[in-house]
Design a protein around this nucleic acid. Structure first.
Lengths: 168, 168
DNA sequence: GCATACTTTCAAATACTTTTGAAAGTTCAG
DNA sequence: CTGAACTTTCAAAAGTATTTGAAAGTATGC
């Protein structure tokens, strides 16, 4: 398989993966492209590689920056902005986990805690079934929260230990 | 908070959660409804509770059955079909993990293995960057595959400690 | 200040997904 | 076999999400 073909296939695959997980396909494709390129790319490079418009590029790159997956790079002597992506997939995974936890899990835990305070006689089977479900889900959500927090921290501690080694 | 209100809010929340994870909102809402109801519901019950059409109900219930999250229940003496959902959220989570692994992770691992065989001189930095990325992602994908397999096999909550060990 | 090189915005167009509901299909009791 | 009760299908309609591109905005060097 030639590089050009392999690249295209990887971008396709990563795009589909993103789409299946509720992430804009183009955003995932830009991410894929930046992950496999050795040097930062400009908006025009991205437009040309993926055949997308300037507006689309701008919007999705901004979103990737919001997620902490891409950063702006200024090349000395150049007026254009360039973009590069984090290449360590472990870091990428913990970044995504941190972001989705903050955006999705944390608010759900808040809601579940509120829902546990539903009024009503536990002898009513509808009330009982509801309370039981919420309690079960709430417990699970808390366990998940802990696990994800540990996962996120595992990256941080890895990072700091690596950093420390550099200074030793 | 009254039961009716709490129920509606839970269904909303679960629906949004699903939507954020690339799952049809209505499918997630039907799932939420069935999880909190003490007894199986008919298509008509679901249509009335969620204000959706018969076709929509039929299609999404079928999909939930495909995912293994809902089952058909026949009530003796009744001609209608009834539906009930798995209520143990741990079981629900392992079912979903199994299904998404099969549908998404397994095919991606296959693709990644193929992509590793890209031709080209490793002195070309584009080839090198590509190969490095794919190798990194592939390694991560295999680790994830192992972790998820372990998760799927586990049915008990002490599993979380195992999960953490795998990531260390 | 002003021209140039670039980035951002956003209304409109397009593409994609979901939902509806009526017709076709199935099942089953009598 | 027939008709009532129920389920399934699917083309069209409605609803959402994404994309475009041109105009507005911003920064920089002269």
């Amino acid at each position: 398989m030639k590089l050009t073909e392999a690249k295209a296939q990887f971008i396709q695959t990563w795009g589909s993966l993103g789409a299946q997980w509720g992430i804009n396909r183009t955003m995932a494709q830009i991410h894929a492209l930046l992950m496999i390129m050795p040097d930062p790319l400009s908006a025009e490079d991205i437009m040309a590689e993926l055949n997308i418009s300037r507006g689309n590029t701008n919007m999705n790159v901004r979103e990737l920056i919001n997620w902490g997956l891409v950063e702006r790079v200024l090349i000395p002597g150049e007026r254009k902005e360039y973009f590069s992506a984090e290449k360590d997939i472990w870091k990428v995974a913990t970044d995504i986990a941190r972001e989705r936890k903050r955006r999705e899990l944390d608010p759900i835990i808040k809601t579940l805690n509120q829902l546990q305070e539903v009024e009503g006689d536990t002898k009513d089977k509808h009330v009982k079934a509801f309370k039981d479900s919420i309690q079960n889900i709430n417990k699970f959500a808390h366990q998940t929260e802990k696990t994800i927090s540990t996962f996120i921290k595992s990256e941080e501690s890895w990072f700091y230990s690596t950093l420390l080694k550099l200074f030793k």
